[in-house]
Design a protein around this nucleic acid. Structure first.
Length: 880
RNA sequence: GGGUGUGUAGCUCAGUGGUAUGAGCACUACGUUGACAUCGUAGGGGUCGCUGGUUCGAUCCCAGCCACACCCACCA
């Protein structure tokens, strides 16, 4: 027996455990049908489930379950990312509570601590994904620092290095002074701030009283200046080109060079050039062969090349201004709106710094990654994201992959005493190579840098399937079917996977990339911890059930749009689950069960034919929409069917049958009910796996599990069977409307007549008399012969080709009735004006398709007829 | 500066070259009919951002504008 109330907490976890324990998420490798595979965007090992995951993983699970029910070999490959910076940060923070730093432990001990942390507290998110219902094959879960995946990393690194696609270079990079590591361009966020613009002047060497005027936002970098640039086109200043300026405070001479980087319109027209601390200046420096002077320590304090060693930049800035003021060189300070780069993890200002780093030749790798998208081997859904992808890929810069962290993949690079580089998959091979090259045993030291986290996640699509080994899984599931992820990581991840996969596998990592939006708060603001507007999906699951949250995500997911969380709506989908639950209970109370000989194509009762056709139509809509990744349309198709057709109409219509005494009709109806209910459970399962499974298990003895039940396909839908019941529904609605408009008491037992009805209508009326009377709460219902005398007190209403008559001896308020009729006539008049305008327009009649013109004429005729009927009705009651 | 997207009912959003039978929530009235008040029935509510153009016909296509959001680059 089903409980009276739907209570998801009572069964969701139990059902999940049952699936997982019986291996329902594992693909059947012997199955001969197509493979379908999704790799999960690996959550950070430090992560907890947020609304973005809830959306992303719900969509994936819907696709996975849908394809699984189609009988395919289905794999949802789960796993986690080691998340270099994020994880190191968490563990360091824990250590700090005990008053120790990672340096106290040393590298090896520290990494041990991280692993220990991972075992104890990492991966909360995987438990949470289970609560959401994610049907990942957890037996295959991978971690980017696993031995297997690390081997993949080393192998591809060596390969890229030997192909010249990874190289070491001394370059200006984004330096994060908190973690004291380089970071990639993507890990830098630009923030708008109101800063200051400082104007001051440098004396011209050998010409007392002559100055060159400078404007800068970072005066303390002047100690790294190695030139001042002026444009050749600058009429006012070009006479200074070739002269030398004297850097104040340190009294160092620097050249004044001609360079177009100095825009005469901006600032003072003269730009101080600091090649070691500014990306543009670095380029200028290269053009003029200027020396580089590094003025910063790794912690972003000033170094010995400045008068203020050990001082942080802000303090040094003040000191510099003070000195310049003392020297009488300071001119003015203005407020200046500007963008300042910050580390996305550390939150500190990023300083451009000259260091030795390792780079991937991204422009080279991008070529193939661009080609396969151009040629449609990988498609973005929605397609518009292609543009974003191309835009970025075509302008891609070398990717800085080295990080001066401890947690991560240590680069497979060894140095001989003289600095010769050996890049091999392991130390033995490197040693052998070195010994061979030197002809003697050489001491090697390993590169201490680790790789950018995204390097290993870039391999995710194939490394998780077993590469570099040739495995069944790799053979079967690569390329994977579709990647589902947010637009915010197209560059971080999608692009890198494309590059790495095309390089190593020569095949796309996934055939499609479904890109969704962000989950925002109720007001449409981005969720963030600092704003305090985050919503915890686990609390929502606790409160409304995982199914309700999942259905919300699916129903709100329309391509290319962000989703605003709405608790009212989630509650609404919980109500939907309740509705379904109660419908199933109704079946149970009426002994609904599919008999062995039941054949949906052979039912006799019109209502049953109708609901079967309707559910088949809904199934087709769900299928078609899922096939084209239209999640909301798909979810809404089930929703509308279940609530609007099955509950609102079918259940109400079969009540008179079930409580009547036509045993054959009852038997057929019980079977039909059960059959349709089962069908609902099937097509709703990808969206609401828990409640559907619970109902599946409790409403009949089952041969198959719902998770493996077969998905309907290619059904012939009997659309003609729909007409009769649709007609009855319209009539019932018309009567209900009339009653409500007339303010008739709910208990009044009425009789209605249909006048001027055609043969079809009269037949339908006779056939469905019981049903109509029951649902419209009528005493009786009849067709009147044409021309039959009717008493004047009848309320009249147009119904299709006929007139609905409602006799009301003294009950009706005639004033209200007159008003109602007048209002309807007014509406018709408005429509008629429109038809007349169109049909009176010769070019419309001539040039519009005949069918459209015909339809317009038909509407006009119908409206005229209806108007006449209403006017007659009004005339009849004029005296009352 | 370059790019992308959005603007439809009070709110959150679907949708469409042929009268907007739009959805959910909210709102109004009525309702203890033997699945469900986490419910039912009926109803009110929109010049589809503005201005032009294409078209027989535009909310939909095109152009411009306004507003909002986001992405990329840069501002010495």
């Amino acid at each position: 027996m089903l409980e009276k109330n739907y209570n998801p907490k009572e069964f969701e976890e139990k059902i999940y455990a049952e699936w997982e324990n019986s291996g329902d998420f594992q693909p059947d490798m012997r199955c001969s049908k197509d493979a379908f595979c999704v790799v999960i965007p690996p959550p950070n090992v430090t992560g907890v489930l947020h609304m973005g995951h809830a959306l992303d993983d719900t969509l994936q699970d819907i696709l996975i379950r849908y394809n699984r029910m189609q009988g395919k070999k289905v794999l949802w490959q789960p796993g986690m990312d080691h998340a270099g910076i994020a994880t190191q940060m968490v563990v360091e923070r824990n250590l700090a509570k005990e008053g120790i730093t990672r340096h106290d432990l040393g590298r090896e001990k520290f990494i041990e601590t991280v692993w220990k942390w991972k075992e104890q507290s990492g991966g909360t998110i995987c438990k949470q994904l289970r609560r959401l219902g994610a049907s990942c094959d957890w037996t295959r879960s991978r971690f980017t620092m696993d031995e297997g995946l690390s081997r993949a990393v080393r192998k591809i690194f060596v390969s890229l290095y030997k192909d010249g696609l990874i190289y070491k270079a001394k370059k200006l990079v984004n330096w994060d002074s908190k973690f004291q590591t380089a970071v990639s361009d993507l890990e830098v966020v630009q923030k708008e701030t109101v800063g200051k613009m400082y104007y001051y002047k440098y004396p011209i060497s050998g010409e007392p009283g002559e100055f060159i005027h400078i404007a800068t936002t970072r005066p303390e970098t002047m100690f790294g200046d190695t030139a001042v640039a002026v444009s050749k086109e600058n009429q006012k200043l070009k006479h200074l080109i070739g002269k030398k300026a004297v850097l104040p405070i340190v009294n160092r001479e620097i050249p004044i060079v001609a360079d177009d980087h100095a825009d005469p319109e901006k600032g003072t027209g003269a730009v101080k050039i600091t090649p070691a601390h500014d990306f543009n200046d670095f380029e200028v420096g290269k053009r003029h062969d200027l020396p580089l002077i590094n003025i910063l320590n790794p912690d972003a304090t000033l170094n010995e090349n400045t008068p203020f060693p050990g001082m942080d930049t802000q303090t040094a800035r003040r000191k510099t201004i003070e000195k310049l003021t003392e020297l009488g060189l300071m001119e003015k300070i203005e407020d200046h709106p500007m963008v300042i780069p910050y580390g996305d993890r550390s939150g500190v200002v990023i300083e451009p710094l000259m260091t030795d780093q390792w780079f991937v030749d991204a422009p080279q790798l991008a070529k193939e990654a661009i080609r396969v998208v151009e040629q449609g081997e990988m498609e973005f859904v929605p397609k518009s994201y292609e543009k974003t992808y191309f835009e970025w890929m075509r302008n891609i810069q070398p990717w800085c992959i080295s990080r001066q962290l401890w947690w991560g993949h240590q680069m497979p690079i060894w140095y001989a005493e003289d600095g010769t580089i050996f890049c091999e998959e392991n130390e033995e091979e490197a040693q052998a190579a070195a010994d061979k090259q030197f002809g003697r045993h050489v001491e090697l030291t390993r590169e201490t840098d680790v790789l950018d986290t995204w390097f290993s996640s870039g391999l995710w699509a194939f490394s998780t399937l077993g590469w570099p080994d040739k495995t069944d899984f790799l053979e079967t599931f690569y390329p994977t079917s579709v990647l589902v992820t947010g637009f915010d990581i197209i560059f971080f991840w999608v692009a890198r996977m494309m590059m790495m996969s095309m390089y190593m596998m020569k095949k796309v990592p996934f055939k499609k990339a479904y890109i969704h939006g962000l989950v925002r708060d109720e007001q449409g603001r981005k969720m963030s911890k600092s704003k305090g507007n985050t919503v915890d999906p686990m609390i929502l699951i606790e409160q409304y059930g995982a199914d309700a949250l999942r259905f919300f995500m699916a129903a709100m997911e329309t391509q290319g749009r962000d989703i605003n969380v709405s608790e009212a709506r989630i509650a609404g989908y919980r109500n939907f689950a309740t509705k379904l639950w109660n419908a199933a209970r109704f079946g149970e109370m009426n002994n609904a069960a599919v008999t062995d000989d039941f054949n949906p194509g052979q039912v006799k009762q019109a209502v049953n034919k109708w609901i079967i056709a309707k559910v088949q139509q809904a199934s087709r809509e769900v299928t078609d929409n899922l096939d084209s990744y239209r999640f909301s349309d798909s979810a809404n198709a089930v929703y509308q069917f279940v609530w609007g057709s099955f509950c609102d109409w079918y259940i109400e219509m079969i009540k008179p049958v079930l409580y009547g005494d036509d045993e054959a009709a009852k038997a057929e109806t019980r079977s039909t009910f059960a059959w349709v209910r089962d069908r609902i459970l099937v097509i709703l399962h990808p969206f609401m796996p828990f409640i559907t499974t619970e109902l599946w298990n409790n409403t009949a003895a089952r041969r198959t599990k719902l998770i493996h039940a077969s998905w309907p396909h290619d059904e012939k839908i009997d659309t003609t069977a729909m007409g009769d019941i649709d007609w009855a529904i319209d009539l019932i609605s018309a009567v209900r409307s009339l009653r409500a408009e007339m303010n008739l008491p709910a208990g009044a037992r009425l009789t209605v007549y249909l006048k001027d009805a055609n043969a079809d209508s009269c037949r339908r009326l006779a056939d469905f008399k019981t049903i109509i009377c029951s649902l419209a709460r009528l005493e009786n219902l009849d067709c009147l012969a044409p021309g039959a005398e009717i008493s004047k007190d009848m309320v009249q209403s147009v119904f299709k080709e006929a007139v609905l008559l409602l006799p009301l001896k003294g009950v009706v308020d005639f004033a209200a009735e007159k008003e109602r009729l007048a209002k309807e006539i007014e509406t018709l008049n408005k429509n008629l004006e429109g038809y007349a305008r169109k049909l009176g327009n010769p070019s419309f009649v001539e040039r519009a398709p005949a069918a459209v013109v015909g339809e317009e004429k038909r509407r006009q005729a119908e409206a005229l007829e209806n108007k006449a009927k209403l006017e007659a009705a009004l005339e009849r009651i004029a005296d009352f």
